[in-house]
Structures are given as structure tokens and as C-alpha cells.
Design a binder for these strands. Structure first.
Lengths: 349, 349
DNA sequence: TAGAATAGATAAAACCTTTTACCGAATCGA
DNA sequence: TCGATTCGGTAAAAGGTTTTATCTATTCTA
């Protein structure tokens, strides 16, 4: 089939014996200046021709693209990740409700080197930008100027003064520590994610704050990097229990690592929670279905995404100037944590 | 900071004492008609002013948006899904390599009712569209006209003649059946996903084809809907073994349900694979980390996504007219399947 | 040296809207 | 009946590119 030419507002004007302006006024119902008769004639022609205004021409004229950008880091498979998935769902939905569409970009080295993140604004790709999975290494975030609406989602960048919406990770750390201590655990291991992530630091700070208060400080030998992955979590758990066999509980910085940790512990013959309790952070969907179901800190990721998107729109329409929000978190108890001392008595079998 | 006005090609022309045309010609290096001196003068001005052409104006002029659309169905949390995540990663990457950006849309009822899927083309949002997670109920796919580049990714729609790229699910079904039969299983249960998905039908057809050949046909009482979710898989597995306690193996239509099935089996005191073998389909990342690691059919999802995107670009540039591709699949053996008869002897404890 | 060919640059049209400023006709008040 | 409103509608500009057709020097050919 031949590529039929798109019908433009001119065609409608001709078809309805009206001027361009009249058609435009009718379509955007600008004040009631057009007579009922003319209006109907125009609408008729629109219907007959199946006319739809070109958003390219509209955007060029209005100088607004109608797009919001989502910038995600280049991870192994960035989108095959429940955490990002949840945020993207929330953003997509909120944007849609406000007649915005979203553009998905991945900030890989080549991308940044060519300043594609700046092109996003300079070349009018987007009206605003949401940055996901940001770390303190992401210095390119400092490139954005004040008049470009950018919000960092569920993170902050230390040293760079950007708008953000995040969960209360310090509180999450405190809650995890309290929960484990209340169950009687004294020797607690910690599996952290990439240390260049600001929220990781927050989480640990909160965690250690409580441990310190209870005179159960966390020695460096009981902390291990789990790389924010399942495999990393498994290896970290094994390393921790090999080095310090008397550990009875582990706090993992996210559910992925926690699930990996459980898997790792099983590999070395440990039972969860009988021998070792494990608590995660995030409360991903999967946390309910692993074995045993994971006790974790619920972080309102979806809400953070939706809120960030809503506030970005406020930023764009100048309804807001500055955005700094922190959302509350809560404990979700399942089966992966139990009172200390139920299982083996202090030694790896 | 005040919103400073964007610099346009006019500014560059003025700054470099050349005409609009000259600047444009230099920037797009159209034939070598411009003298070296002028060229340098223009480039200098571009640099000095930090000029970047507006993609809105360019698109309006060229009648190409430079965007590819991804249309996903409205699932609970569409993007928080490894399957879609993998496809989206692949598409995003391939698109990026070809200087295309991607737009993410969710086909919810409201969206379709308002024909937003058609607006995508009519209003010049995208140059081409990739449809994910399509089912036979998605009749709106018939709305697209021949001159609109649309590819259905990893699915087909029976009755609608659309381009597609998919994995060989019939073969996947055959492989699963052969594997279980070779291990000596005679009573095999089947957990299927939504029956309105064409690939589900393919999978079952292949599966039953082999079972029939071996004179081990699948009675309806040994098939159960697992809703393509973990929870559904768990419930389906429990239902199957309650109804037919002598089942020794289960084939689940995807890994999510397989993982759910394992979880469900454990709940009713069954060991995997000792009492019941479980095989999935997809080979998601997580399959390696569940307990026990899941035997499954590897489907090259990433490759399918990348290929679909590449072919869509061919469609757009008229390098291709029709797209019909089927990618091969393979068996990945892990720990969730074992020879029949290792465990209990035919009865639920 | 006239006429043709070529190099270098540009004016203007086209892409499709929205919006501003303006115009003519009808209505109204005095 | 004149001047002021109001009503219904339109021409033209603006938004930022690319491309086509055109124009002016300059160089070449005969």
C-alpha cells in the first residue's frame, strides 16, 4: 500500500470552507468566538478526513515536547530488574495520566561522553528528566543547569545539589537493627551494596546507629560487599560465615542480595532462619515467594516513582521550585528471621 | 535562573556572517560546495554559541520522529517483570545504536478506547512500533494499516496478519516432553499460562505432540492454569497433586510459574526433584538462583528483542517488506528434574 | 572578448501548528 | 444616523529546520 499523505489542518480548512485559524480555534476551543454553524462544519470535516494534529508541529510551536525522560544506569540488563521496573511502572502511569509520554535512555559511557544527557534538553527531546539508580560517581549530574527540570529518584548525590524524592533509608537501617536485636541476635553480619550509592550509606548509618546504642557495634570483619546481586549476596553470606562462624543473623542491603544470601547459606548447610536469620530491604514482589519467605523492610518504591513524576511535572509548570522529599518505610515480618539460638549452638557443622 | 532562550540556526548565521542555508549545508555536510573558509567560520560560531539543532524542527521537516514505540500490555506491574525487562533492554540497546530513541506506552483499556495506539502513528509520535506481551484477545492490532511499521515481539496473533519475531515454542514444548520422558516420567502434569496467548498454544501443541507419540497423552485433569504468575504456579501445582497424587513431574509454561510450583510443592511437603520434577520455560536469570536451581528451556529473549528492533528499522527504511522469524530454543538442565522413582513411591505422604 | 561553465552563497518555499492583530458586518445606544 | 460595540472570521507571523531554485561573481573556452 502506498504511503498516503497525512491530512493537515489545511485540508480541513479547505474541506470545511473555513480558514486555518478557524479550524485551529475550534479544535482547541479557544473562547466561544466561533458560531455554532461554523463549528459543526469544521468538526464534520475533521471527522470525515480523520484529521489529527501533528504533535511535531504543535511541539515546535509550543516549545514543549510533551515527553519526560527516564535515565537509567547501564547495569547488566537494566530493565530486567524489579526495582527499576517498579519505578518505571509508577512513572509511566503518572506521566500518562497527565498526557505526557516517556522516553527511556540508558546512561552508558558512550552516551555520557557525547553529552547525550544534555542533548535531551538542548535538542528538545524532553521537558523534564528523572534519574534512576544514581550513584555518587555519577558526576555528570552536575552538568544540568538550574532551569532544566531534573529529579533524582530514590537517591541523592552527595555534593551535587539536585532535587530528589527518596525513601527513608536511615530509618530502614534502624528498623532492621532493632528487629534483629529484639530477636536476641548479638552477632550480626551485614551485606552491603555498592558503596558509592548514597542510600547505601544512609542505610548503614541507621543500622550502625542502633547497634552502637545497644553496645553491639559492627566490626569491619562482619561487613561484606554483595554487589547488589543475587550471586554477590550468596558469596558474601558464605564469606561472612566462613570468617565469623558465630554470626546468627544477616542484614542485606536489598532483597536480591538477601535472597542470594539465603541460597548461599543453604549451600554451606545452614538453615534459614533456624541457624541464621536473614533480613532484606525493599520488599520486592519475589520476597514473598522465596524459601523461606523473606522478612524485609518495605520501601514504598512505587509511591516514590509516582511522586517523583508528579513533582517533576510541577517543576516543569513552575508550580514548584525545589523538590526534597523523603517517604517513610516499614517492617514486613515473614519467615526468614527468628529468635536467636533456635538452631545450632554457635558453630558451623 | 531565567530561562535563557535557545540558540537557533539563525543566530549562528548572524554570528558567522553566512546565510541560514550555508549553515545548514555545513552542518549536514551536503556536497562539498562550501569553501573551507566559510565552513570554518560557521563551525566556529556553532562552537561559540553552543548551537544544537532542534530535533522538533528537524522532525517536522523530515517527517520522521526518530522514535520507536514499545507497547506493553497492562499487567499488574508491567515493567517489574524480567521477561519484559529483557526485551526492553534489547530493544533499547539496538535502537540506541541506530540513533533512535524509544517511547514506552502501556495499552490499558482507556488507552485503546481512545485509539492512542493509532495516534502513535497519526500524530507522528513514532516511526515504528514493537508490541510486547500480545494475546489473541488483542484485536486492536488489526487496526494498524499496512504502511505502518509494526512488529509483534515473541508472539503472534491468530487471525491477524502481522509481522513477528518469536522463539520456537512448539520446539520448546517438544524438548520439555522429551526430557521428562527420558527421565522415565509417565504421569506428567502441565501448568499453562493464559490460554489466549498464541505461544502458549504452540508450547502445549509441541508438548502434547511428543506425549502422544509416546502413548502418554495428557488428560485434561492433569492440566491447570497458573496465570503466568508465581502465586498461580504454586496454587496450580498444589491443585494438580491433590487431584492426581501420582504425578511425578510438572512442566510449567514459564519459569515464574515453575518457581511458584516448586514453592507450592514444598508447602504440601513434596521435595523437588526427589518427589516431583519441575521444568520451566524461559530460562530467566532467577532460574539459576532458586532452590533447587531450575531446569528449563532456554529461549533467546534478548536476541528476539534485538532482532525485532533491527527488523523494524528495516521496515521503516523499506529495506524489508515482511518480517516472519522464528528463533531456536534449547534445554538447560539444572537440579529441579531427576529420574522418576527416586523419592516417595507414588503417594503423597 | 564574448559566451559558457563553475564555484560559492543565498532567498524562499515547505513541513504544520498556534496566536496575534486586524477587518468587515451587524447590532446597539444615544 | 453616527459612532461604538460585538460578533464571526481571517491574514500573517512565528516556531526552527532542510531543500530547491536562483543569483552573482569568477574562471575557462573558443
Amino acid at each position: 500500500m502506498a504511503k498516503r499523505k497525512a491530512v493537515s489542518i489545511k485540508d480541513v480548512a479547505r474541506e470545511s470552507n473555513a480558514s486555518l485559524t478557524t479550524v485551529s480555534l475550534v479544535l482547541n476551543n479557544r473562547d466561544g468566538r466561533i458560531s455554532r454553524a461554523t463549528r459543526e462544519r469544521v468538526l464534520d470535516a475533521v471527522e470525515r478526513l480523520g484529521y489529527r494534529p501533528s504533535r511535531l508541529a504543535q511541539s515546535l510551536q509550543s516549545q514543549r515536547s510533551g515527553f519526560l525522560g527516564i535515565l537509567v544506569p547501564q547495569l547488566r540488563h537494566a530493565f530486567a530488574d524489579v526495582y527499576f521496573g517498579e519505578l518505571i511502572s509508577a512513572i509511566q502511569e503518572t506521566a500518562g495520566e497527565n498526557d505526557y509520554k516517556i522516553i527511556l535512555d540508558v546512561a552508558n559511557p558512550r552516551y555520557l561522553e557525547r553529552s547525550h544527557h544534555l542533548e535531551l534538553f538542548r535538542r528538545h527531546y524532553v521537558d523534564g528528566l528523572l534519574c534512576l539508580g544514581v550513584t555518587n560517581n555519577d558526576t555528570y549530574l552536575a552538568d544540568f543547569s538550574e532551569d532544566q527540570p531534573v529529579i533524582v529518584v530514590n537517591n541523592r548525590v552527595s555534593g551535587v545539589d539536585l532535587d530528589f524524592v527518596q525513601c527513608d533509608y536511615s530509618e530502614a537501617g534502624r528498623i532492621a537493627a532493632k528487629h534483629l536485636c529484639e530477636l536476641g541476635h548479638k552477632k550480626i553480619g551485614y551485606i552491603h551494596g555498592a558503596t558509592e550509592v548514597q542510600t547505601t550509606a544512609d542505610l548503614r548509618d541507621g543500622f550502625e546507629e542502633v547497634l552502637d546504642q545497644l553496645k553491639l557495634p559492627l566490626p569491619e570483619s562482619r561487613a561484606e560487599d554483595g554487589l547488589y546481586t543475587e550471586e554477590g549476596g550468596a558469596k558474601a553470606a558464605i564469606a561472612l560465615l566462613t570468617r565469623e562462624p558465630t554470626i546468627t543473623a544477616i542484614f542485606a542491603g536489598n532483597d536480591k542480595m538477601a535472597i542470594g544470601a539465603i541460597s548461599g547459606l543453604k549451600r554451606i548447610g545452614m538453615r534459614v532462619p533456624d541457624d541464621v536469620s536473614v533480613i532484606g530491604c525493599d520488599d520486592v514482589h519475589q520476597a514473598e515467594y522465596c524459601d523461606p519467605p523473606l522478612t524485609t523492610i518495605h520501601t514504598p518504591i512505587y509511591e516514590v516513582g509516582a511522586r517523583a513524576c508528579g513533582l517533576l511535572l510541577d517543576l516543569i509548570s513552575s508550580k514548584a521550585q525545589v523538590v526534597r522529599e523523603t517517604q517513610p518505610v516499614s517492617l514486613t515480618v515473614r519467615k526468614s528471621t527468628a529468635a536467636s539460638g533456635k538452631g545450632r549452638n554457635g558453630a558451623v557443622k
